[in-house]
Nucleic acid binder design. Structure first.
Length: 877
RNA sequence: GGGGAAUUAGCUCAGUUGGGAGAGCAUCUCGAUGGCAUCGAGGGGGUCAACGGUUCGAGCCCGUUAUUCUCCA
């Protein structure tokens, strides 16, 4: 059975027969949850329903959620590929009840789907329930007819589910499958015992309690069902495969890897590289497709590590060139039908992977060089062992994989000290752990935040309504007040304040409570609550409703100008550069706009001019900006630009600017493009490979900036005595002229010095059998002083010359020694060292030329002239 | 969040007791050989990432910041 069929049957069963809403998979990159690196379970996108923070729009749902797990107890990245079932990326099939059906239906439907639709042999199935969940136990007995020894009870570890230390939780019931050969002699004690023949297929979670901080369980008013079945494992089971990698989700990819590397796939240990690469490819393609990007921190760093691990296994297959990106089309063949987003972004995904593979190549090259140095040193000292510290540094600082170091060492008949390496590694881990305990400010989890929420009115599920598209003020009622760390937030039933989202900064403004004015300095969104951040500390303990909310209009209009301008910019970019331009980050405030987008090279000046022109043309045409609420499907059909990786609901808001721009957007905009004012690009730069950034200003800011430049230009034109249009070429000429003048002066001064040099070497003093010249000279710079020294050295033999000068009221002394005397051991550096000390400073340099400086210019002449009497210095001459 | 590194000409990089900013490639000019280009001579190109400190003097030492690389959590 094809995996596509399995997925489809699952969804169809719940959607068509059982009236579930099909909810498309959320992007693997969490949208509003900074604590989560990747979506790692089907329930992530429904979390707020279980927490009671928002109201679901439907009571039953079915989905196949893309999940990524790269860390955690049960999924160490380094383990993936060694066995047949660990993955970094997998799909979780699930059906959901939000306060609707419960255990009887969930159990019955799961059983029917598995046995009747998928046709799994009942004699291979087991059900597990929580130790005191008699209700589920009885249901299983009744519905499945399974004998007693196939319905098993387990404790907290296996059959109780929670989201965290506090919050919603409940018992769960799992369905396990025996896939061994001896159906008649099964052993129920091997369920939940890590036996590869007894595997978990499906987990049904029954959420019925809320656990508070005292560990007390109180029944929830509404009970929920949350189930999860891994598609990969289901596909393996239904096709009688022992390994997920032998299903049609993986085998085409593995074949392609074998094809590229010319290394056949092997089911046993030697097939690890194929499995790793196939698994990691899926993770990379989906996370990049959903908007992640390899980088050196946070989520991006996880991507980078996964990619490098795949590349490293590529090297094991003797592939030394970028190749992972070549597998993307094959991946799309296996799974693109279910997740068309990777088809739409194929080019982007491939380009990102390829460039990252290349950059890993550079890291390896660099590491190789350093390894050669280290190896040479070891060999030079007749050693056979590379120190652990060196191996560690290679790995820690330069990212050179240890297994490669080992391989290279062996080629050179060297060994590496793994013990010492492991110790250093251990130390680094300990340090990171101990430091992070003290170093971090505690961030509150969602559940803790919930605990801290004081509810003025009991209607917990009532959320704030945004009414600010056309209003700047409102009369509102306070719903909640929230304190997070040191910040205070208020939530109202309705508000004209726009909360930060879609890259637009949150509104600022005022709030009037019982005649007293408070400032709101930011507005944020959490789930369906709009949080107004209040400047001062404020605790409200009595009913103060209604209150008056007033948005800072100028600030809002500034944001609106920049927001509409951003839409025009994106449309212009696509028109000038091409359709590959996708938004990959955007920030809009009253001050400026910042737009990040996919593009693979620096934008040419010519194109930038075109873009500027196009946007400003659209502005002066004063086109009406039309917001509209419409069906998502219709909007998409009409060619709306949607954000990639963003999840939209059925009814969406779109913004249309004539026939030029049409985007999904919840932000605030101007009514006519003319309000935007001049659009000026402040900078165009690269953010990461494949991503460019444009920063621009509009409205009052751009007008101010234009006026300012104009003023400066007018001034310049006056000073330069030249029309504005000619200033540039005139300045260029002046600089050119200045350069030639400078050169001429330098040449002349050098010549002059050449003449004056003879002055300085007229009267030698005989000392220790050679000549000493002492002089006070006049120069403009240290360079000139050194020039004199050069000239003198060229002319003299067996001489030492010491020249003093005062530059910017600091005394400087130059000493030169001719080559023959340098050979005799006379050292200019030592000589000036002593003179420098006398001047209240110091000195040094090279044996043939050195400089000293000090703080006492008035002593200079005396010191220079007294050198011939100074016995300490004479010793050096 | 913590550690280790890097940042010098358009590119790749060198530059140690702190005392003249360099090489190769690229570019421009001139010349020779002579034709899938090679060689020679010369030139242009640098706020040595930014800021602060120490010092008579900082590319170099110290501190802060930024960016990038890298490992750990």
């Amino acid at each position: 059975m094809k995996s596509t069929t399995i997925r489809k049957q699952f969804i169809d069963y719940f959607q068509q027969e059982l009236n579930h809403e099909f909810v498309p998979s959320a992007p693997v990159i969490p949208q509003n949850d900074p604590t989560l690196l990747f979506i790692n379970a089907g329930m992530n996108q429904f979390k707020s329903y279980f927490l009671g923070e928002s109201e679901p729009k439907f009571k039953r749902a079915v989905n196949s959620q893309k999940c990524i797990r790269v860390s955690g107890k049960h999924n160490d990245l380094e383990e993936v590929g060694k066995d047949n079932y660990h993955h970094t990326f997998f799909e979780m099939l699930g059906n959901w009840s939000f306060g609707d059906y419960y255990k009887p239906e969930a159990i019955e439907w799961a059983w029917k789907l598995l046995t009747e639709i998928y046709g799994i042999d009942k004699n291979r199935l087991y059900a597990t329930v929580y130790k005191n969940d008699d209700e589920s136990y009885d249901l299983w007995k009744k519905i499945s007819g399974l004998p007693k020894n196939r319905i098993l009870r387990y404790g907290e570890k296996d059959n109780f589910w929670d989201m965290g230390a506090i919050g919603p939780c409940g018992p769960c019931s799992e369905i396990h499958y025996y896939r061994g050969d001896d159906v008649k002699n099964q052993d129920p004690t091997k369920v939940n015992a890590d036996d590869p023949n007894y595997i978990e297929l499906w987990n049904l979670v029954f959420i019925q309690y809320n656990r508070d901080k005292n560990n007390k369980l109180t029944p929830l008013p509404k009970k929920h069902v949350d189930t999860g079945a891994g598609l990969e494992r289901l596909a393996a089971t239904l096709n009688n495969k022992l390994s997920n990698y032998e299903t049609d989700l993986f085998s085409p990819i593995i074949d392609k890897i074998a094809d590229i590397s010319k290394v056949k796939y092997n089911k046993n240990k030697s097939g690890i590289p194929h499995r790793v690469i196939a698994d990691h490819l899926r993770m990379l393609a989906f996370s990049i497709g959903d908007g992640a990007f390899p980088s050196n921190e946070g989520r991006g760093y996880v991507l980078r590590r996964v990619l490098r691990r795949a590349a490293r296994f590529g090297i094991k297959l003797n592939v030394h060139e970028p190749f992972i990106y070549k597998l993307v089309p094959t991946l799309i063949d296996t799974i693109g039908e279910a997740f068309p987003e990777i088809i739409n972004r194929q080019k982007h995904i491939q380009q990102v992977i390829k460039s990252e593979e290349k950059s890993f190549g550079l890291t390896l090259d660099k590491g190789l060089e350093i390894f050669e140095d280290i190896a040479n040193k070891v060999k030079k000292n007749n050693n056979k062992i590379i120190q652990g510290a060196d191996v560690f540094k290679l790995y820690d600082t330069f990212g050179f994989p240890v297994d490669l170091t080992n391989m290279l060492a062996e080629e050179k008949q060297l060994k590496i000290n793994m013990n010492s390496f492991n110790n250093l590694m251990k130390k680094q881990k300990e340090m990171a752990r101990s430091k992070s305990k003290f170093g971090t400010v505690k961030t509150l989890t969602l559940e803790e935040t919930l605990e801290m929420t004081e509810k003025i009115e009991s209607k917990k599920t009532q959320n704030s309504k945004f009414i600010g598209y056309n209003n700047f003020t409102s009369e509102s009622n306070l719903l909640k007040q929230i304190q997070l760390d040191k910040d205070f937030y208020l939530v109202f039933d309705q508000t004209p304040f726009y909360p930060e989202s879609g890259g637009q900064a949150g509104d600022k403004g005022e709030i009037i409570i019982s005649g007293k004015k408070y400032f709101i300095i930011d507005t944020q969104k959490r789930n369906d609550d709009i949080l107004h951040k209040i400047k001062s500390k404020l605790k409200i303990s009595q009913n103060i409703n209604p209150v008056k909310l007033i948005v800072d209009k100028e600030n809002r209009l500034g944001s609106a100008r920049n927001h509409t301008a951003t839409h025009l910019l994106q449309a212009a970019l696509r028109e000038v550069l091409g359709d590959h331009v996708h938004q990959s980050g955007s920030f809009v405030s009253s001050k400026y706009l910042r737009f990040d987008f996919t593009h693979y090279e620096k934008i040419k000046e010519k194109d930038l001019d075109k873009i500027l022109n196009l946007v400003n043309q659209k502005i002066i045409k004063n086109i009406p900006v039309e917001p509209k609420t419409e069906k998502y499907k219709n909007a998409i059909q009409n060619g709306v630009i949607a954000l990639f990786g963003e999840k939209y609901s059925d009814n969406v808001r779109s913004i249309k600017v004539g026939d030029f721009s049409y985007e999904l957007c919840g932000g605030t905009h101007v009514k006519y493009t003319g309000e935007i004012g001049p659009f000026i690009i402040k900078s165009e730069s690269g953010v990461a490979s494949g991503i460019r950034r444009i920063e621009a200003i509009t409205g009052k800011r751009s007008i101010d900036s234009l006026l300012k430049y104009n003023k400066i230009l007018t001034e310049l034109s006056y000073i330069m005595d030249s029309p504005i249009s000619k200033i540039a070429s005139k300045v260029e000429n002046v600089f050119k002229h200045r350069r030639t003048l400078k050169k001429t002066i330098n040449r002349l001064r050098k010549k002059l010095i050449g003449y004056s040099v003879d002055e300085y070497i007229k009267s030698p003093i005989k000392i220790n059998g050679h000549n000493l010249y002492l002089n006070i000279v006049e120069v403009n710079s240290i360079d000139e002083l050194k020039n004199i020294g050069d000239k003198v050295r060229e002319k003299l033999k067996s001489s030492v010359a010491i020249f003093g000068t005062v530059l910017n009221s600091t005394p400087q002394v130059l000493c030169i020694v001719t080559d023959d005397l340098v050979k005799e051991g006379i050292n200019a550096g030592k000589i000036v060292g002593m003179i420098g000390k006398k001047l209240g400073g110091g000195g040094g340099g090279r044996p043939h030329m050195a400089i000293a400086g000090g703080k006492k210019p008035e002593l200079l002449e005396k010191i220079i002239s007294s050198i011939k009497e100074d016995n300490n210095i004479k010793k050096l001459l």
